[in-house]
């Protein structure tokens, strides 16, 4: 279903974009540019970026298109039938663009052809443990997390990690953890590690374990039960290691992404990206003043 929607959006985007660059009437080009911007906002919605979709409509459709239409209206008679709209470089430009497209699509397929969609991330649970708290003689550990929803189904995610002795020359390998089939048939993606890809840890490091669901209704689920045990001893119900520190902080448990997208972007802009934010603000101000200065008539 969403694939059909995507193909419809993509086809319309490319159709209108083709019209933007080929239309003889520059006014019609600007109108189909509006359509392209709207449809790209739809693509953002499909990618769970509601805030960007709103910003796209506000700034592109609302502001930039108006600017372009004003420029077209103020420079009249630039699109009459007698004025040629393309230059003499159509053939070389077509060759260059076709080459770019072929090479680009091939390299994209090779690089990202096997990328899986990330889980919808409606709920996530984390737990952490410091490796120095574990008995040093055991190097390979397994962990499992069990979450139960309102229908008394248990969903289980399991994973493993290894601890290596501290050695500054050792390169930490990064491997992606596979999605793990839970007992009831729903997929719980499970990753261990802070960056979600490390599975090997140095002594003394803190191991962060994380699971998230795939968008099934887990609203009734409040907490996950974590267990960690040496890798050889599987399926031990009672002797699971209990050193894991669960996070029961409500902020870290199950915030629906649909509600937090705008809030998260706002928090990031005001915390981690506050300097780029300020720089871009000043740049925008300078650009607007510059535009006024350029466009002013000399007295």
């Amino acid at each position: 279903m969403s694939l059909i929607l995507f193909y419809a959006l993509a086809g319309l985007i490319l159709l209108f974009a083709l019209f933007v660059i080929t239309s003889r009437n520059i006014f019609h080009s600007a109108l189909s540019l509006v359509a392209v911007f709207f449809l790209v906002a739809g693509i953002y919605l499909m990618l769970n970026a509601e805030f960007l979709a709103a910003v796209q409509v506000l700034i592109y459709v609302g502001a930039i298109t108006i600017l372009i239409l004003f420029a077209i209206m103020l420079t009249h008679r630039i699109y009459s039938k007698s004025v040629r709209q393309t230059n003499e470089q159509v053939v070389p430009a077509f060759v260059i663009v076709a080459l770019f497209l072929v090479i680009g699509v091939i390299s994209l397929q090779r690089t990202f052809g096997d990328a899986r969609p990330a889980p919808n991330n409606i709920g996530s649970w984390t737990a952490s443990i410091n490796t120095s708290d574990l008995p040093p003689e055991v190097k390979n550990w397994s962990w499992e997390a069990v979450i139960a929803d309102s229908t008394d189904h248990d969903y289980r995610a399991v994973g493993s990690f290894s601890i290596i002795e501290y050695d500054s020359d050792v390169k930490i390998h990064a491997r992606s953890a596979p999605a793990i089939q839970s007992e009831s048939g729903n997929i719980i993606s499970a990753n261990s590690g802070f960056s979600s890809i490390n599975k090997i840890f140095m002594e003394g490091q803190t191991v962060y374990l994380k699971i998230w669901n795939d968008g099934v209704d887990y609203n009734a689920v409040s907490e996950a039960v974590w267990r960690i045990y040496p890798a050889r001893r599987r399926n031990l119900d009672d002797s699971g290691w209990s050193l894991l520190k669960e996070t029961t902080d409500p902020d870290q448990i199950s915030v629906p992404l649909a509600n937090s997208n705008t809030e998260t972007i706002g928090r990031l802009l005001m915390s981690r990206f506050v300097l780029p934010f300020e720089v871009v603000s000043i740049l925008l101000l300078a650009a607007l003043i510059g535009a006024i200065v350029i466009a002013r008539k000399d007295s």
Partner: peptide, 8 residues
Amino acid sequence: LTRRNAVG
């Protein structure tokens, strides 16, 4: 690459 019109 092909448009002659600066707005284009």
